[in-house]
């Protein structure tokens, strides 16, 4: 493969299918992760559909393209509508935006400290 093709993108959609390869060097840790992960997404106080919507919002907040593909599909398969999924992304975006903005208070504190 040429250097140029290596440089095209860091993310490859097919790499999601290789996620289990992460267990090759640390099988015990991978097993524990999977058990915990699967338990997290089972129906509990929250429904599987609600959990998938939260995951979709978080996937956007951490900007993981693999997670966005996986949980867009999962949300549809759990019965969420595109409108509900879009609102979940807005929630993630609002928290990210708010998180930036609230740090403005720190900025203001520093301004106050340094200014006459």
């Amino acid at each position: 493969m040429s250097e140029r093709s290596h440089m095209e993108t860091y993310y490859h959609p097919k790499d999601l299918g290789k996620f289990a390869d992460m267990g090759k060097e640390a099988p015990e840790l991978w097993k524990k992760f999977l058990e915990w992960y699967n338990a997290v997404f089972q129906e509990g106080a929250l429904t599987e559909r609600e959990k998938a919507l939260i995951a979709l919002g978080v996937a956007h907040a951490v900007q993981c393209p693999y997670c966005i593909d996986a949980y867009s599909t999962a949300c549809l398969e759990k019965g969420s509508t595109p409108e509900q999924m879009t609102e979940a992304v807005h929630v993630a975006a609002a928290i990210r935006g708010g998180a930036s903005l609230v740090h403005g208070v720190q900025m203001r504190n520093q301004i106050d400290k340094l200014s006459m």
Partner: peptide, 17 residues
């Protein structure tokens, strides 16, 4: 039927919704 190329959700859960 799903409106696209994906599987249907849990019948019991969707029925409640």
């Amino acid at each position: 039927n799903p409106v696209g190329a994906f599987l249907p959700g849990s019948q019991a859960s969707l029925e409640a919704d």
